[in-house]
Design a binder for these strands. Structure first.
Lengths: 130, 130
DNA sequence: CTAAGTGCAAATCATTTGCAACCAG
DNA sequence: CTGGTTGCAAATGATTTGCACTTAG
């Protein structure tokens, strides 16, 4: 991993800092601009593309039509907050037994899964609850 | 539900016949063309839009970037076959207890969920298994 | 120098929307 | 007639790609 790729490194750094869990290309682009690094969507796009290929990041397809990128790591699922739009991580609720049961029932072969709950994140829930 | 909307009725009919479980706009458009009904994407789009609004159809966001439409009915999740691309229904594995546990752990409020497994559907698995 | 990395502009893809022509009631 | 439907074309929104220009090594 040569240190040449400025954008690549900058994006990796953003993901690592974890100021936010899942980033859209927009989020990343904006954060880079914030940090004084003027750049282009295509560059950010290619950086995330390589990060994913290198196994450092994961791409999550949210149901609002925009992809999010997060640091690769332990598997977990997500909660899409319908109020603030954030995609927050939640522990995975699908265990091997469930997959096995589904394989048996469906006759298919099941690998990955992508689970997106929709609701309110902790912060927004507290705002609403009151 | 007036009988005026030709496309609307034609699309509803396709969904009802269940020749396929989940249809992309492309699928529907192509099937209509097959059936001799020349039409436009926008019309198919508006038909599905209304079917969903009328509660007759459900829109499912697959992770290949295209939305699928299916007959509204009992809740279930899906398996995206990575070989044939089909989105087949599988029973839901997330029960109330799981949701409740997640709410407790995350501090959020959880409503719906969208689960897409990826793997092979029965047919493709059999082709591969051998 | 030399290829990898960038920025800008243009191309895709999958919808969505504006509008004028159409058609069932 | 008349308003709900359609088809066609153009607009969107989010990527993706083509290319010439930079720049680190």
């Amino acid at each position: 991993m040569a240190r040449k790729a400025r954008i690549y490194a900058a994006v990796a750094d953003l993901l690592q800092r974890g100021q936010r869990h899942a980033w859209t290309l927009d989020d990343l682009h904006a954060a880079l601009a914030q940090g004084g690094r003027r750049t282009d969507f295509s560059s950010v796009f290619r950086a995330t593309e390589r990060l994913v290929a290198d196994g450092l990041a994961a791409k999550v397809l949210d149901d609002d039509g925009r992809a999010r990128f997060e640091l690769a790591g332990a598997h977990h699922d997500h909660l899409h907050c319908t109020r603030c739009g954030d995609l927050v991580p939640v522990p995975c609720v699908i265990d091997g037994a469930a997959s096995a049961a589904l394989e048996a029932e469906s006759g298919g072969a099941i690998g990955e899964h992508n689970v997106i709950f929709s609701g309110l994140c902790r912060g927004c829930r507290e705002l609403t609850d009151r």
